[in-house]
């Protein structure tokens, strides 16, 4: 790629790179900006036309079909989802370990008092 530059003076090469470099960086970002300003909305619009009818807005759903869907049902669903998400039940960790507990002296475990009670 070095063959692109035929100048021998590094300074003049530097200016060439300065100007072309800046131009390319700018043009790249301008193209990106233009695309996202104009191209993307068009693309999204086209996508919407292609997939037309698949996803409806809430306002487009007719009330008639949902006549059996009462407020009670929705309340039950809402409550269960809420219960599920907030995990009303306690979940204990499955790991059980025996921990040594430090106790102060107790005569019940004392070695002094054996069965025969010999001192």
């Amino acid at each position: 790629m070095t063959q692109i530059l035929l100048y021998t003076d590094p300074i003049s090469e530097g200016y060439v790179i300065l100007i072309t470099g800046l131009l390319i960086v700018f043009s790249a970002l301008v193209i990106l900006a233009l695309f996202f300003n104009y191209g993307l909305p068009i693309m999204l619009y086209v996508y919407k036309i292609i997939t037309k009818g698949k996803d409806k807005k809430i306002s487009e759903i007719k009330v008639k079909t949902d006549s059996g869907f009462t407020g009670e049902i929705s309340a039950v669903i809402g409550a269960s989802v809420h219960m599920y998400l907030s995990e009303q039940h306690d979940i204990e960790s499955g790991i059980l370990t025996i921990k040594q507990v430090k106790k102060t002296y107790s005569p019940w475990s004392s070695k002094i008092y054996g069965i025969q009670n010999r001192l």
Binding site: V25, L29, A33, F36, N37
Partner: peptide
């Protein structure tokens, strides 16, 4: 997107 130019 026009803010992209500032990065340039």
């Amino acid at each position: 997107p026009k803010l992209m130019l500032l990065g340039g």
